[in-house]
Design a protein around this nucleic acid. Structure first.
Lengths: 146, 146
DNA sequence: CGTGAATGTTAGGCTGCCTAACTATGGAAA
DNA sequence: TTTCCATAGTTAGGCAGCCTAACATTCACG
């Protein structure tokens, strides 16, 4: 029964994957705990850095509900990183956009976090780095499909 | 300047890695939202499944503070999945161990979540699966070193 | 002994998510 | 035009999970 061993291998991989997922979450949390801005807030700024967007778009991209997005956006607004303007083409909607301070802060935090991760990755030998790099798009594929 | 391009590549990889990390967290959150048990609670059960252990060990392994671990453990206790016994060798300490219900529940939830991830992984072609499998230990290495 | 370290628990607070209920605008159909 | 439903967002209230500070108990050592 070829399919049975395949199934077993798949389950074994799934278990390793889940375990690694925990590690990843752990790592992500430790990134957040520099106190600056949460990963979610950084993601929000990233989106707005490309172009102004609606609250509902932010919520969808973050995978959270609209009221939760509103909450986060209001915090970013109070921190002066983001502004909320009514959408001229639809006055029900609100456009979230980066302020100048928001952009510079975002760039700087981004730089710092990239450097921190780069430092971690730098400890790997180049073979491991290549392995990791190859796997990143696969993970992206996994989450996009679901 | 060879080292400069290396540095730039490392930063680029770091950026991709951070982005993928977000995806991973997203995926992990969606796993949790089946309502059953949180990933952290499952991890706690996993530890206790091996052998009874102290609250402080649970906290250390989960990367949280002792009071937070106490909180989670009490919830697991109230759910009947875990029992708290004073450590016979040190009556300050508390040993967390699985109840019979705890073990069967843990096994079943584990099975279900493995199956869910396996189903996701099954959609990948075998080449991508191999790439992913190769990268898992690298990620583990990353988080252990930090 | 007695004093400082170690182990947990309790109390109180914060963040981030949720649902339900509401306001206001848009759009289409009578 | 007017009515009515859908869409966009906010407000209110609640819950989970983390934190620090303060505490009780036990241990271990001088």
């Amino acid at each position: 029964m070829e399919t049975e061993t395949e199934e077993a291998e798949l389950l074994a991989l799934a278990q390793s994957f889940r375990s690694t997922l925990r590690h990843a979450v752990y790592l992500s949390r430790s990134m957040d705990s520099d106190g600056e801005l949460s990963t979610m807030q950084m993601s929000t700024l990233s989106m707005a850095a490309d172009a102004p967007l609606r609250v509902s778009r932010v919520a969808a991209n973050l995978g959270i509900r609209v009221p939760s997005a509103t909450e986060q956006i209001i915090k970013l607004e109070q921190a002066g990183l983001v502004s909320r303007q009514p959408d001229p083409t639809d006055s029900r909607a609100v456009l979230v956009q980066l302020t100048r301070t928001g952009r510079t802060t975002w760039e700087e935090v981004n730089r710092r976090r990239n450097a921190r991760i780069a430092e971690l990755l730098g400890r790997l030998d180049s073979r491991d780095r290549a392995t990791l790099a190859a796997a990143l798009p696969v993970v992206a594929q996994l989450t996009n499909h679901s």
